[in-house]
Design a protein around this nucleic acid. Structure first.
Lengths: 351, 351
DNA sequence: ATCACTCGTGGGAGCGCTCCCACAGTACCT
DNA sequence: AGGTACTGTGGGAGCGCTCCCACGAGTGAT
């Protein structure tokens, strides 16, 4: 039996109505089946499902979005230029976790780069149009206006690293403080005594926490504070190299370095080489992230591993909860949803 | 003066209708202004624009998509697992070009990975729902069913490398044939006489074209064909290494190698090293892609550069044309839209 | 038997747009 | 004067869904 023929402009993609007619039920019932409502008898459900299969029915997303006022899409917003996104393994791991967690869902993921000013404006416009039900924010700096914009637009958001101790947004982070402690305690346990620290960008809260972990590990072990052993970096290789050179000049007697990232450590290694210091004989080196760089460095780099993929998964969990909770007028902010995941030290021959 | 108050569920996002009331015009007129129709008087346009600004009006995408039967979104489909996407600079360059070209547009880009079986099914569902107006296909193998699916669904698509000489889809490619010729001619001009070729995957049309370019460059220079100098690779490092070893065994007197990719060349270099051959003294080596690998190899690798970012841009051009052309019942396939871009040899010390 | 539920179901209303037809106004020809 | 052609404009219809109210049938307490 032929189908009723094309009346729509796109040449007859079946509609809810057609499925209903075919199954001999009403529109509402088909909608219920499609959306998995339990208030449908088994017989009816079977009939509808058969009709859906026969007609090859696929719901029209736009109509659904319009009627239900939701999009079934969330965005992963990366406030960095594409280049960094591709060069840092962090992002690809987050994406892997996010993708895995989302694959059981009807939700669709959008990837949005907002590195430049122009892209920022586009993003603002995009969000104002409410084209996504929620937003995942990674790598946000302390003074970024994006979270405020999202709050103002009342769009659920989850942030990957809290911007401060007073973060109000739901967040997922690894234990930066604990990870730094692990690194420093490891160095101390290997008999190192003058442990320097090349920090991350100081406007990143996680970098602050690593500094605190570094300080506390030293003082708990009875070492007096020595600010000359701390040099600011910026998570880049050049920054690491520059900072290392500065440290060597200031404290030539240092015997260990804890770098705030593997990339930073790679830069530090370069500067150490140029200064004729051997790793780990003269100076032990520990990085952070346990990225591919750490494994391929010469010598292989001891590093603090963060469960990045898991972080991606947890971010999705939080966000989906947040999105689902937008039914009642429930008060928010009372139960902070801040997830902190444990880190793990991966010892290699650089220390 | 207060706005009329929230009647919608989402707390009063302004609608077209409200803008019309505010500007003292009809709904149709506002729609015309929003969509840039020329059939509006300047005075009216100004009034509408003022109302839009005052109300902070942003069009509702879902409503527009439903009414106009378009989505203003296109997808970049990568039939590979995320991992390869991130590890190969090819993709990030394509993405850069695509993003740049799209930034003047209202079009939104979706990035879809379809590496596994499961993802493939999700993608099929996604496309069946017509959630995008067009698709960009990169890295498609000869036997991939995706292009057929797209044709069947009548979704405009552009492919990054044609699947064969008879490719029906609009495509953008670099001049694989010419690039290979450049590489071989370069080697011959340096006095090399026994030039070998490690091919790419033979089910990739571009790899075939490179073989042809290699053959023709040699025969045009008066060299007789020697099939023993051709060894299949697969674009991977291991494949390159294996192929090089095979070549050395078969034709130990070879004095140059043209590898179908930089990664392949890296593998070949490894095998040459192990066999005690010096580069370029004993054997000259040329790669393809001019990727970061080429610049960082020891010695730096002569390579054929493809204008990948430009390719991304041109793909968007083609696709947007294709999408726009879906008004008349015009016959397709008559004017093939196949773009081929020139390559450039970048000489370095490996040859 | 009656009332009070609950369950499964049908279908009206409406989401915010675009498309298109109708119409008033002006201009330029016969 | 009437015709014809355009230009700018208003607003009805309809895109394909979800939401929700109404309704009949079944169930159990009264």
């Amino acid at each position: 039996m032929a189908s009723h023929g094309a009346r729509g402009r796109s040449g007859g993609r079946p509609t809810l109505e057609e499925v209903a007619a075919r199954a001999g039920v009403g529109r509402g019932t088909v909608s219920r089946v499609i959306n998995g409502s339990p208030r449908v008898s088994d017989a009816t459900r079977a009939a509808v499902e058969a009709a859906v299969a026969e007609l090859g029915y696929v719901p029209n997303t736009a109509a659904r979005a319009l009627a239900a006022n939701r999009t079934d899409a969330i965005a992963l917003v990366v406030p960095e230029p594409e280049t960094r996104f591709f060069s840092e393994p962090y992002f690809s791991d987050i994406l892997k976790g996010v993708g895995a967690e989302l694959s059981d869902t009807e939700m669709q993921l959008l990837l949005i780069f907002a590195g430049g000013d122009r892209e920022r404006r586009r993003l603002a416009q995009y969000l104002a149009a409410h084209r996504v039900d929620g937003v995942l924010l990674v790598s946000v700096h302390a003074d970024d206006p994006l979270p405020d914009l999202l709050a103002q637009l009342d769009i659920p958001a989850v942030i990957s690293g809290p911007r401060s101790a007073a973060e109000t947004l739901p967040s997922v982070d690894s234990d930066n403080y604990g990870g730094a402690r692990q690194a420093v305690e490891h160095l101390l346990s290997r008999g190192r005594r003058r442990v320097a620290h090349i920090t991350g960008r100081l406007d990143v809260y996680g970098a602050q926490r690593r500094i605190e972990g570094y300080r506390d590990a030293l003082s708990d072990a009875g070492h007096e504070a020595d600010e000359a052993l701390i040099e600011p970096g910026d998570f880049t290789e050049e920054g690491g190299s520059r900072a290392m050179a500065a440290l060597l000049e200031r404290r030539p007697d240092l015997d260990a370095v804890f770098a705030a990232s593997d990339v930073t450590a790679a830069g530090a290694r370069q500067a150490l080489r140029e200064a004729g210091r051997r790793i780990p004989d003269d100076v032990a080196l520990v990085g952070y992230d346990d990225s591919a760089i750490a494994r391929h460095m010469e010598p292989p780099l001891t590093s603090v591993r963060q469960p990045i993929e898991v972080m991606g998964r947890r971010m999705i969990d939080l966000l989906l909860t947040e999105v689902a909770d937008r039914r009642p007028l429930a008060s928010r902010g009372l139960d902070r949803r801040q997830v902190v995941l444990a880190t793990e030290l991966v010892p290699r021959s650089s220390s």
